[in-house]
Design a protein around this nucleic acid. Structure first.
Lengths: 218, 218
DNA sequence: TAGATTGTTAATCGATTAACAATC
DNA sequence: TAGATTGTTAATCGATTAACAATC
């Protein structure tokens, strides 16, 4: 019996896998059967050694002088990420961000299927959002239980996020994708991925300030 | 004369600064004048030492037995990130993601002002998006030059992203916030921040798969 | 065979965490 | 003073990169 998270693949590796997957699918479509780590690196990062280390987590072995079998690699990455089966998800917050997420075509390729959207605002309930009816929040728990929903997406304003998270946990949700800039607290057996836009903007703003500063000096 | 990026603050620290900023602004509103690293850590992460290390990059010194001056810290973080002045940005791609970004209220607090949206699709041009008219892509360069726009946001489908990036660079844009899942190539004096949703989803999916697997075994 | 490529083992690098002296 | 808190210096940890033997 293990306690805590048993060390699997490094997190940065997991984050890079979707990029490999995208490239590999393109290559498969182009009829390519094998690809070397250097060929992948040429397209994505400069270092092939990182590609080999990353791909090692899938368990797929490459062939000397030939490279990795493209189709097997695709399958293995999908399986590793749990993207080989579709995961149904409920989304809360039928605002513009919610609409964008509902409409994102890429998710189906990632095994994600947002089956329903909920909102606490009666004005939004009942109206269709991206072809699906927006449901009242009061129906969340019952539906989530009946449909065995495991994943929840929070696209509400920040102040609503903590209580929505509680609702999700109470409804049997085990993974929460949180787009609200708020801390949410969940039990040990629930996982959270925070998607905070301001982090990325901070990095970009800082870098922009740096290059402009440098040029100002020069 | 330095070549390459001169080592500033660690990237993870920069990514955490907006979270501190949010908390500090709340505390300022509550009338708090000083805050200790342990008090911040209690709200955000478990370790106060990381807070102290992170805040050190701002140059603000705390007082023993008292903590850090809240208002000074807010100002210093804003200045560090270049959020003390407003940055005007152009957005390309007037789809649902573009609409969500245009409408995100949080950006004004981060010194970001999306002043115009562009689209290559004539059907979208002319119609208002979040209160601003959508302009034809053909006007991008001229307007960007005249308004001295430094930041561009790509919210187009993946296949359009590389050429939009080229357009932005040619128009004097120096920082690109890329929401399309595509690699874009820019010259050395331009910075890019890729915001790839699939990375976050990969982490979440993998973790969900792990906990469900673990329970299945148990 | 020669050479390209993988995968393993070791070295480096950077960030986090720990220890502790300094200070009010 | 005693104790809380900072900031510095050192230790640990984890990821990336390098070196190189194994293989086809």
């Amino acid at each position: 019996m293990e306690t805590g998270k048993q060390k699997g693949a490094p997190l940065p590796t997991v984050r890079r896998l979707p990029t490999y997957l995208r490239l590999l699918r393109q290559m498969e479509k182009d009829g390519r059967e094998f690809v070397s780590s250097t060929a992948i690196a040429d397209e994505l990062h400069p270092e092939s050694i990182q590609v080999r280390k990353d791909l090692a987590v899938t368990g797929i072995e490459g062939k000397c002088r030939v490279g990795y079998p493209v189709s097997e690699l695709i399958q293995a990455i999908e399986e590793f990420l749990g993207w080989d089966n579709t995961t149904d998800a409920f989304l809360v917050g039928a605002g513009s961000l919610g609409a964008a997420l509902m409409g994102y075509e890429g998710f189906e390729r990632h095994g994600l299927n947002i089956v329903a959207a909920f909102d606490i605002d009666d004005a939004k309930v009942g109206r269709p959002l991206r072809g699906k009816e927006v449901l009242p929040l009061s129906k969340f728990t019952d539906l989530a239980r009946r449909m065995h929903i495991r994943m929840g997406i929070i696209a509400t304003p920040a102040d609503a996020a903590p209580s929505i998270a509680n609702l999700m946990v109470a409804s049997g949700i085990r993974a929460i994708w949180n787009f609200a800039p708020a801390k949410i607290i969940v039990p040990e057996n629930v996982v959270v991925q925070n998607e905070d836009l301001s982090s990325g903007l901070a990095v970009l703003s800082r870098q922009l300030a740096e290059i402009l500063e440098k040029e100002g000096e020069a």
